[in-house]
């Protein structure tokens, strides 16, 4: 599995070389796009991280987790993931903040962190996407698609936690 990534890079570099692409120039241009993207993201990250920090320090997050844990446990979702699962549909940077926190707190190879990683990777920020995709178009009836996506996201979370037990 670890082999896949270097092989992918070598293949793409090789093909680009064959096509006479200026590899160094273009690779740096890609990295420069990455910088622009991240710089645009920093203010949102700052706001969301401040919110998360307040939420944690004020002990409200513990209360919420306590409240919802029985429901989540019933479906086999560890209570430590409650906040991640709740924030994911609304904010990519927010859920990233919680994912990073979980990985740091429990260790990258713990069951909790692996569950969180799989959950994070298999769902998206539904509300953000629906806003961006349909901005400026004639109003659409999006309730049904959004509900379908939310149900599917919840079932996928249950499935992820189940899969991580033995994979």
């Amino acid at each position: 599995m670890a082999l896949l990534i270097p092989v992918l890079f070598i293949a793409v570099f090789g093909f680009a070389l064959f096509k006479k692409v200026k590899i160094y120039d273009e690779f740096s241009a890609g990295a420069s796009d990455a910088l622009k993207f991240v710089v645009k993201l920093i203010p949102c990250l700052a706001a969301v991280f401040m919110m998360c920090e307040l939420f944690e320090v004020s002990a409200l997050s513990d209360k919420l987790t306590e409240l919802l844990s029985p429901v989540f446990s019933f479906f086999g979702i560890p209570p430590e993931l409650t906040k991640l699962v709740l924030i994911k549909p609304f904010s990519g940077s927010g859920s990233l903040a919680y994912l990073n926190g979980i990985i740091e707190k429990y260790g990258a190879d713990s069951y909790i962190a692996r569950c969180a990683s799989v959950c994070f990777g298999s769902s998206e920020t539904v509300f953000y996407i629906s806003a961006v995709y349909f901005a400026g178009l004639k109003p659409k009836k999006l309730a049904a698609p959004i509900i379908i996506v939310m149900i599917s996201a919840f079932l996928t979370t249950v499935l992820s936690c189940f899969l991580c037990r033995f994979m």
Binding site: A16, K19, E26, G30, A31
Partner: peptide
Amino acid sequence: AVWMGLARLAEKS
């Protein structure tokens, strides 16, 4: 930076 660099190569080639 890593992945967008690679994506750019894939796009240009």
